[in-house]
Design a protein around this nucleic acid. Structure first.
Lengths: 341, 341
DNA sequence: AAATAAATTGTAACCGGTTCCAATAAAGGT
DNA sequence: ACCTTTATTGGAACCGGTTACAATTTATTT
């Protein structure tokens, strides 16, 4: 109903100029204490809220940070978002959280929209970086920090955990456990996934002489995919007499896998051991607690936000390349087998 | 580096006025096809991105919708957010997702900030509505839709599921199953929780004559609380000879409860049956699949967004009160016992 | 009491767009 | 050839703030 009040209204009521009101609002310069109190009172009484839009337009600082994650429903990403949010909020910034839903076009669209909204910086877990938008961003001076991505360009700030190493230590567990057959399930076509596969093979290479059966399946992205994979191969798993370990390159796939195997009466981990990746919060308490590779998600988000804020406040700060070490977490789905070889 | 281009730059390059460029940008009025193409070409070449801030300032439409949920890490809320996002994106709006983290002060702070950012509308799962900010919002003309909340004021739009009814049908299962002892675990002090307790007692009232042991514990909010409750009462549960059913008024508490009971070797559901509330995505596949009350979260978010958009486009639309029916989902943690009484 | 410095406030331009209104040019009618 | 339409474009004010600069008032110094 009542039109929103502007700084002009307040100045009129107080009988001063807009400039003076603005000064009170920003504590920018000294204003006579009496006028000041009077203006504050009027602001209070009329519940005046200055427009951040107008402010951002002149100050060229919106205090908005754009955040793009790949999946809102995935606790891995929301945990990162929580880390970001806590850090940003502490510094008076507000987060514009959006989700690309693993859709490249939507990612482009969103980043563009954010850019137009004059965000002060961008935090993103990119699906892919060789795209027009990223080229555009590079040319612009918008501070950007990539998360969960490996650096391809020394000018880019990134915060990520080491996916190659993570997959390596995961694979090592499977090899050390002496499973005859070791299967790797790769998900979304993504740099992260490629790194993990690379790490997996790096470790596999060390066991080349050992006469193992090594298989890689790709395109296993979701819990459903994991479930279906298990169902589709259930007969096979029931017939084999050798031991088998499966490295699902993300926890959701591992969940589906466990469900599918159990539904098909293939015992986990006795017949088939399952190892996940990410250690999302539910992994610890899954029906069969999941062995997996832990990433410190909240911290990752927090560090990314810190890095971004530094870049914002110091434009010629050089880009950092922050790599966090992942950790193997051993639970029931793939225990550590103590064999003396 | 290079300062962001403005409409003035483009107009200069094209040798026309800002007005003409603006017209091309907005398809608002007819512009000569030749000029038009020329301007578009120049925009393209220089990768000009108009500032939404400036645009919003004049148009008084930011195309930003503020969304406040209570917990980013809780799939219940993020699922709602996904529903919202899908609907908003379809309509050219962008979502400003924030989390109050169950903190009343932060909720105030966030809503204020959003308001100042000239959001076109607000979607919120409020912790509490009798606060200064909400009074302020009521006086302002900002379209607001409350989610997951029961209407207290006929002018407020709300979209929620019926928590009283949900708890009633949940409680009914426990009574029908003839558990001698029935425990209700209430979480966060929140209208939703109160409604659920009310529904629980409504059903309990119908069984007043039946000589049951009915207990209510409050302040059980998180998975940890549920876990600790189970541990603390494990000895009791082991000693009782009668049957017992626990209604955890949210799924997380139920998860913790199940874990705690299992860790203390109390069998679920044989010794103690557990019923949750919300049916978050993990409930279906928990180590013991959880019986719970289902709420259509994605749909709830979508409907809330629809309602909000309607309000935005038609300022004197009257407020709706959309109540979605919850459903009982029976799984293993609290099966349906077929007793002939 | 005059000169100078400090404190306080106002004026006006600007941020990057949109849009009303007027101006000009081209086209159509008689 | 002159008048009226219509199409296209430009000028300038405006959205709601900020800020450099100037102006005015008040205090301090000598």
């Amino acid at each position: 109903m009542d039109r929103k009040l502007t700084i002009a209204d307040i100045s009129r009521i107080a009988g001063v100029s807009k400039a003076t009101v603005s000064r009170v609002l920003n504590n920018s310069e000294k204003v006579n204490e009496v006028t000041r109190q009077n203006i504050l009172k009027i602001i209070e009484e009329n519940n005046y809220q200055p427009s951040n839009l107008a402010r951002a337009l002149t100050k060229k600082r919106s205090h908005i940070i754009g955040v793009v994650i790949e999946d809102l429903a995935n606790p891995f990403f929301t945990e990162i978002a929580r880390g970001i949010e806590s850090e940003l909020h502490k510094n008076g910034y507000i987060m514009f959280l959006t989700s690309s839903n693993w859709d490249r076009d939507k990612e482009q669209d969103i980043v563009n929209k954010l850019y137009r909204h004059q965000i002060d910086g961008l935090l993103i877990t990119p699906i892919e970086t060789e795209t027009p938008v990223f080229k555009m961003l590079k040319k612009s001076s918008l501070p950007v920090v990539l998360m969960n991505y490996r650096r391809s360009d020394p000018d880019q700030s990134i915060v990520s955990s080491d996916n190659i190493k993570g997959a390596e230590i995961g694979a090592k567990l499977l090899f050390d456990n002496q499973y005859r057959e070791i299967i790797c399930l790769k998900g979304f076509e993504h740099q992260t996934a490629n790194d993990r596969v690379e790490g997996f093979y790096k470790e596999a290479e060390r066991h080349r002489e050992e006469n193992r059966i090594i298989k890689l399946f790709t395109g296993i992205n979701t819990r459903e995919d994991g479930y279906n994979f298990a169902k589709d191969h259930a007969d096979y798993f029931r017939t084999i007499i050798h031991s088998c370990g499966i490295f699902a390159l993300n926890d959701f796939v591992a969940f589906g896998l466990i469900d599918g195997l159990l539904d098909a009466s293939v015992s986990v981990p006795d017949k088939v051991a399952v190892l996940g990746y990410d250690d999302i919060s539910f992994s610890e308490r899954y029906r069969i607690p999941l062995s997996t590779i832990h990433q410190p998600k909240f911290r990752l988000g927090k560090m990314a936000a810190e890095e971004l804020l530094e870049k914002i406040n110091n434009r010629n700060k050089k880009a950092s390349n922050i790599i966090i070490d992942p950790e193997l977490v051993i639970r029931e789905s793939c225990p550590l087998i103590n064999n003396n070889r």
